[in-house]
Design a protein around this nucleic acid. Structure first.
Lengths: 165, 165
DNA sequence: ATATTTATAGATATTCTTATCCTTTTATAC
DNA sequence: GTATAAAAGGATAAGAATATCTATAAATAT
């Protein structure tokens, strides 16, 4: 089992790209997003539709339309995104899935799992999509992300060249 | 998404019960296990069969048969169990599921996720089923686990009464 | 206004996980 | 040996996650 669903993975990667593009003043169409992050187009559509419905990202129909994130919303976090897609189980539920589990009635792994769950939550709470997008390396024409890995081993000069605060 | 699959949850709970019973010198039948941990009987059968095939637990057919863990194997860990059921993804894979992700070619959340993955791994590596079973509260006739929560808020006297090292 | 572009919505397919049932094998008790 | 008890194995079903396709609605450009 992975930590995140496929949907959440695509959502995060897509949003990093969309925010990076939004910071450069561009809306991004579905097909561009899918091409940039290497995700199945129609499935990506469903995911972005959901995020749009939940107001985590914005969209515009018609020519020159696409997905974008307005400046006021740059501070959406990994936690926002993951909760919107995968729900809150990872952050609230017992490690063994037991409804009765609590501090006063702990499951067998309660003490071991609790700090891990807290650390996962804190990390996602403290990581904004914007902060990830700031480090993203977009290619010259703004269409793709280097090797699907937004941050890579290019020299710092290239990095600062492509990333506008 | 939960951290563990349903199969892994049942496996852990079942093994805690089986080890606790093994420490008391008893084999435990499938139906007893399922009743004790509140899991679907036939599904539990499949899970225990798999663990048995992988030699994480042992089993005997016939009257007075059942599942057990021999003393030499008391030190199986959460990691052994979870990897046997859910595979190694949680412990080795990139947080965003990207094959190319590595220290030298990190994905956007590589730096944030790496220590968390390490902590999950360390926790499971360092937690033996035996250590969890030692704290388990089994009822007087040895058939059930208190409220499905193996460790609970009973007084220490009761705890030491029921748990033999 | 019309054509074009793009997101939205609904319906369907596919695969994986979870769950159940039935038959076979193996060990014990008698 | 025969009956009985229990795990092992195979087949099937139900549900959820992933993925695809088609039709609709909205915005822009002309």
């Amino acid at each position: 089992m992975p930590l995140l669903s496929k949907s959440a993975e695509y959502a995060i990667r897509a949003c990093i790209f969309i925010v990076a593009r939004s910071q450069a003043g561009h809306k991004t169409g579905l097909k561009e997003v899918a091409a940039a992050i290497g995700s199945p187009v129609f499935f990506t559509a469903k995911i972005l539709q959901g995020l749009s419905r939940q107001k985590l990202i914005s969209s515009m129909k018609g020519p020159n339309g696409g997905f974008y994130v307005p400046e006021e919303a740059f501070d959406i976090t990994l936690l926002d995104l993951v909760q919107a897609i995968d729900g809150t189980d990872l952050f609230t539920e017992c490690g063994l899935g037991m409804k009765q589990c609590s501090d006063s009635n702990p499951c067998p792994i309660h003490d071991q799992y609790k700090p891990i769950r807290a650390q996962i939550t804190a990390m996602m709470e403290n990581t904004t999509i914007q902060s990830l997008a700031r480090r993203a390396i977009i290619d010259a024409n703004g269409k793709t992300i280097k090797g699907l890995s937004l941050k890579n081993d290019l020299p710092e000069s290239v990095l600062s060249q492509k990333t506008a605060g």
